[in-house]
Each structure stands twice: as C-alpha cells, then as structure tokens.
C-alpha cells in the first residue's frame, strides 16, 4: 500500500470573539485524526479554543495571475472606507 497521509490545513480560533486563522498544515489519514494532530501540534501552548481542519485539496484559491482582475477593482472604491467621509469633528459617536 502506498500513499502518504493527505495534507490538511489548520485554522485556529485563538480566543472567543476572534475568527479562525490559518496557522499551518499537517498530515493525517482522516478528519478525525487531523483534528487530534492539530490539537497536539498547534495548541501545545494553549493557543486555541477551537480548531478547523480542511483537506488542502478542497481549497479553491484565486490565481495570482488573475489578481489584477480580482483585487484592483476594489482598490478605488474608497467610499467603502469610513475615512472617505468628512464629518464635523464635534459630531459625537461617528
């Protein structure tokens, strides 16, 4: 029997109130083991309260070749950012 255990991407929620953040990857034969391994490898110092594991092969990524088309159109929509708007300095809670 050949074949290495597949690769999994590991995401950890460091504290309640935060998003899961990608921390690295590891090899595991299945999802259950991937979770255990992620716990052992990536939370040895109490780094997390929740873990996601995702097979690396299941991630669809945007291509760097298309990055202009993907991301440049957002760059000039400055009205999406709060600093675009002039408001009087004495207007409270804005």
């Amino acid at each position: 029997m050949s074949g290495m255990w597949p690769l999994w991407e590991v995401f950890i929620r460091a504290r309640r109130g935060m998003s899961h953040i990608h921390v690295g990857s590891l090899h595991a034969p299945d999802a259950e083991m991937a979770l255990r391994h992620a716990r052992d490898v990536y939370t040895r110092r109490g780094e997390g309260v929740s873990i996601w594991v995702v097979p690396s092969s299941q991630i669809t990524a945007s291509s760097p070749d298309e990055k202009d088309a993907f991301f440049d159109p957002a760059a000039d929509k400055i009205y999406r950012h709060p600093t675009f708007y002039d408001v009087p300095a004495d207007a409270p809670h804005l």
Binding site: W5, L26, H27, A28, R36, H37, D40, V41, R44
Partner: peptide, 11 residues
C-alpha cells in the same frame, strides 16, 4: 510511526 505521533505521544 509518524512525526505527528511523536508529538502526540510526548503530550
């Protein structure tokens, strides 16, 4: 048997 398991057994 695998590096991940070295870590688990050490834990």
């Amino acid at each position: 048997p695998e590096l991940e398991e070295d870590v688990a057994l050490a834990n």
